[in-house]
């Protein structure tokens, strides 16, 4: 109950920050792109709407996850509201979990609205829905899973560093997560303890390689159900690990 109360308050705070306006910007961008590309290119209206739409969902989502996520704890300390909350029968883990659920809910609603906007833009360039459109929604789901992990990382860093540093760390890990496969290949080529250290480090960073399916779904390719299951379990496991680290860091933190 306490977790849900904190989650609701976090969601309301994000809404007050006008975070939910980003789907409106997204809708304008998508409609504009669909019209423009029809004028300046040949034969790729549908692909552009899907590719641009999925890139925009990622871009807006990462911005929201990092900007809001990194300020979650710092803002509470700065405004001294954290002390009021923790003086009540609220455990620190409940505070961290509530903050995460609130932000994850904001991101899910944001991403869901943008997914619907993407479908509307697709409807504009190719009348009628096809089975391939369902894979676009799966691609949006994969992006939401990535955002959950980024959100967890932002929250983890916000428990022990300033919002600016937490933002830099989170964004760096988002970028590195897209290179995780290459980094692991490089790490595998080493030897001795350096090799073990490097391989271990690559497992600590998120691996987004399997989540990037935009190019395939833009051509109507299907996504294997095993990949959907694997990515879902990986995202939940990784986010759980990061949240546990965030709880530990917050438990150990001296609050004065």
């Amino acid at each position: 109950m306490t977790v849900l109360t904190i989650a609701r308050s976090t969601f309301r705070e994000a809404a007050r920050d006008r975070v939910l306006y980003s789907p409106a910007v997204f809708a304008v961008l998508m409609t504009g792109a669909a019209i423009l590309v029809g004028q300046v290119s040949i034969g790729i209206e549908r692909q552009v709407v899907i590719n641009l739409g999925l890139a925009a969902v990622t871009f807006f989502g990462v911005i929201v996850a990092i900007l809001v996520g990194t300020g979650l704890v710092a803002k509470e300390i700065q405004k001294r509201t954290l002390y009021t909350v923790l003086s009540r029968p609220v455990e620190r883990w409940q505070f961290v979990a509530g903050k995460f659920v609130g932000l994850a809910g904001t991101l899910a609603i944001n991403g869901g609205l943008m997914g619907l906007g993407l479908l509307a833009a697709l409807r504009y360039v190719s009348p009628g829905f096809s089975g391939a459109d369902a894979w676009v929604l799966v691609a949006v789901y994969f992006i939401l899973l990535q955002l959950l992990m980024v959100c967890g990382l932002a929250l983890l860093f916000s428990t022990f560093s300033s919002p600016l540093l937490a933002g830099v760390f989170s964004f760096a890990l988002f970028v590195l997560g897209n290179f995780a496969q290459e980094l692991r290949d490089v790490a595998q080529s080493g030897a001795g303890w350096v090799h073990r250290l490097m391989v271990g480090a690559t497992y600590l960073m998120p691996n987004f390689s399997a989540f990037n399916v935009a190019a395939g779904v833009a051509h109507g390719e299907s996504i294997a159900s095993l990949l959907i299951l694997h990515n879902s379990i990986y995202a939940v496991t990784y986010t759980g690990m990061v949240l546990c680290a965030a709880v530990l860091a917050f438990e150990w933190r001296e609050l004065q």
Binding site: Q47, N178, F179
Partner: peptide
């Protein structure tokens, strides 16, 4: 690598 997983969008831009 620079596309951060959105190489399809970069391909569309180069085709355009």
């Amino acid at each position: 690598r620079l596309s951060l997983g959105h190489e399809g969008l970069v391909a569309d831009l180069y085709w355009t």
